[in-house]
Nucleic acid binder design. Structure first.
Length: 131
DNA sequence: TAACTGACTCGGC
DNA sequence: AGCCGAGCCAGTT
């Protein structure tokens, strides 16, 4: 049994200080890449992590999305899902169904919390950005 | 202060 | 074929 009451803490505040691109916060990079995802496309945590050069930091991408809510400009966290095409993070949305509805609104079909034709809709940041 | 957690992914057994 | 452990960064307790 987990924590019955999860207190909603304030989202992590990103440093306003502009650092060199290479020294940018991991979160900032995640948000930046997420915002580049074209409408009607989706990508995975691992893809973003890999693009940032830290393929093993997929968890952090997901964690970063945790603080993506309320970010400006908005971060399309609903377009970021796991490598199986499953909406694992839907429970963090408000309401949880918002994630699926947002995807469907963009023309992405979701069935059983899973993106249909995920491989076809998959957007590879590295490839798209010509890395 | 140190330790734990988390919207993941991969490799090994 | 399924289960288990390790690694990543930042924020919280």
């Amino acid at each position: 049994m987990k924590k019955p009451v999860k207190k909603k803490q304030a989202p992590p505040k990103l440093p306003e200080v502009k650092k060199p691109d290479e020294a940018y916060s991991f979160f900032e990079n995640v948000y930046a890449v997420a915002r580049l995802i074209p409408k009607g496309r989706v990508t995975s945590y691992g893809a973003i992590a890999k693009y940032l050069g830290t393929a093993k930091s997929a968890r952090l991408v997901g964690y970063a999305m945790n603080g993506a809510h309320g970010q400006k400009p908005p971060v399309p966290a609903h377009r970021v899902i796991n490598r199986n095409g499953m909406l694992t993070g839907r429970h963090h949305f408000n309401p949880p169904e918002a994630m699926q509805e947002n995807l469907e609104k963009e023309g992405i079909k979701v069935k059983d919390h899973q993106v249909v034709d995920f491989e076809k809709l998959f957007w590879n940041p590295g490839k798209h950005l010509g890395i």
